[in-house]
Design a binder for these strands. Structure first.
Lengths: 339, 339
DNA sequence: GTGAAAGCGCTAACAT
DNA sequence: ATGTTAGCGCTTTCAC
């Protein structure tokens, strides 16, 4: 039969559709015999309950929405993509599907919300990366569980999966310090971004702990997205006036590459003249040049953790308002060396 | 109101739910006045029809399934991921969502099909990359439109979006020939893979057209997945016996990198001693080393095209059994040079 | 332990 | 031009 319904099963098993439904949900008060009969019919007909029908009556769609800003969606490095893949992975374990969508990076109050919310086509929402707070506010008004990954919204108290950015910042800086560097620069993007500010705090903390002077001239923030070209620009400002910098910690790999671009263009060798370390570990896999030391962020795991929170909330209803801090790892490659 | 239904709208507009439905579907025979009334009520209540309810009655879910093998899903280079993103992109234009899932690379007859098919939770399926033919067969049995991307199944006559692999192979080879190379090697993966065999055919065609001898010793196929390590292995076999090879065309970027790895390890410089060209263009973006010449494959566009085929089929019902051949582009970077 | 029946929110055929 | 109604496939309460 093309698309058997619960009726077909009931007919074949000589029971009512209610009984079939109970069997499907493994209800206790069903006799062995009946259960067996029904299961056989299901098997023979190759029956699967329809999602739409279930969704309508149970108000559960089995879908989870995944929201990303355009900016993040279109970035070439596989950062948020890998987080998405992680959610996908864990979704499967929990019989869920993920609906991906993007919102404008400058989401305005008048902008429409993702269609899957309006159509009640998701049971929960995972938000990856920084999104405008106006969006967060609007999302909170719906009665949908909300989980944030790689971004902790201010004010709102939602379950969150974030990288231990502070520790990572310390680890990167300490690595340079241990290699004998003293004049260590920091290059960052938008300081208002929680991740970047935490990485910066890790940097200052490590510097202070090592009793190294924190030179304001060694620090450069771009207002823009922390992209490769911005790293280049930042480096040009940094090195113009500070010839004695021997190492730079960039807030992410893209900027680190931009810094290396600049140094190469200006006759400096990496790592011989200047050590550079990044953050995220999005570069390595397919590069064939001198590889970048960095702080590895377990991107897929972050997605997995987020979906685990979602799934356990959906199942057990416990909203622990948990903050999952995923660990980072120092990856020493060839862009840093002892002084 | 929390979740207004069609009834709420009908009540507020003083019409029947049927009228509301007709207005939603922009039916002709509705008077200006009524339409206006209803639209106002919809606006005021912030009403959106429920996906599940619609899905149940119309047998249309608004979802498209996207199937990938594990192998492809887990590869680090963003090839299929970008195709997926392309489908996602075009899906939004057509008010569709994409459900991603993977199947085992060795899908067996007894393996269950993706859940979204069994639950009738998709209106069509896009299959990306090579999948076991047994899966294709099973999928065809369902009455779902099927579209293939980056893989053309043998026997089955489905709409397909593929790269012009043959032309790409010619372009890559001609590039090397134009640079003065004569002893040009070819390194490929599984020759049974249509894409690889087409690229190889392009290579041989270009060689023959240039009246260059096709030396069997200059050609190496691995049985395995065309990965970086396999490129390394292939290169080691190739160069062991053929000291006079001055250029290699690798069937994809990953293998090209493996070849470069081997050459470096063995004291050969790229491109000074040996030119290497790849295929796919998945390396460039975040590499900081000498960059790889390659044939660019428009990955996102492929996804877009596939979803366009799907959407137009769903809307107009025209199954053109079209074969969309997406164009490739020669990207000359620093891994190839004139002899 | 099992069945009858209501109803989830919508579409579409048929009435009026 | 608009309303009435059946029914999509399922879950769940309430009878029996």
């Amino acid at each position: 039969m093309a698309n058997p319904t619960i009726k077909d099963v009931a007919k074949m098993a000589n029971v009512s559709i209610a009984t079939v439904s109970l069997v499907i949900h493994d209800h206790k008060r069903i006799s062995r015999v009946t259960k067996q009969k029904v299961l056989e019919a299901i098997e023979r007909l190759n029956y699967y309950p329809s999602r739409s029908a279930r969704g309508l009556v149970s108000q559960k769609t089995g879908n989870i929405g995944f929201i990303l800003t355009n900016d993040h969606f279109l970035r070439t490095e596989p950062f948020y993509t890998n987080i998405f893949i992680g959610t996908e992975f864990e979704a499967r374990e929990n019989e869920l599907y993920v609906l991906l969508t993007t919102v404008d990076s400058n989401f305005k109050d008048s902008d429409p919300l993702p269609r899957f919310i309006l159509e009640r086509n998701v049971d929960g929402i995972i938000i990856a990366g920084k999104v405008p707070s106006i969006l967060t506010e609007k999302l909170c008004d719906f009665n949908l569980p909300l989980i944030f990954v790689d971004f902790q919204p201010v004010k709102r108290n939602c379950p969150v999966v974030v990288v231990d950015n502070n520790l990572g910042g310390k680890m990167a800086t300490n690595h340079l310090i241990e290699y004998g560097h003293k004049n260590i620069g920091f290059v960052g993007g938008d300081i208002d971004h929680p991740s970047i500010s935490e990485r910066y705090k890790g940097y200052t903390a490590a510097m202070e702990q090592a009793k190294l002077t924190l030179n304001k001239n060694f620090i450069d923030f771009v207002e823009d997205y922390p992209a490769r070209t911005n790293g280049f620009q930042a480096a040009s400002r940094l090195f113009k006036n500070n010839k004695d910098i021997t190492a730079v910690f960039a807030c992410n790999d893209a900027m680190a590459l931009g810094i290396i671009d600049y140094l190469k263009d200006n006759g400096k060798r990496v790592p011989e003249d200047v050590s550079v370390i990044g953050f995220d570990d999005v570069v390595s896999e397919n590069s064939n040049g001198p590889s970048l030391s960095t702080i590895r962020v377990p991107k897929m795991e972050m997605g997995v953790e987020a979906m685990k929170l979602m799934s356990s909330f959906l199942k057990e209803g416990i909203n622990h308002n948990k903050k999952v801090l995923v660990p980072v790892e120092l990856i020493i490659r060839n862009s840093t060396q002892k002084i």
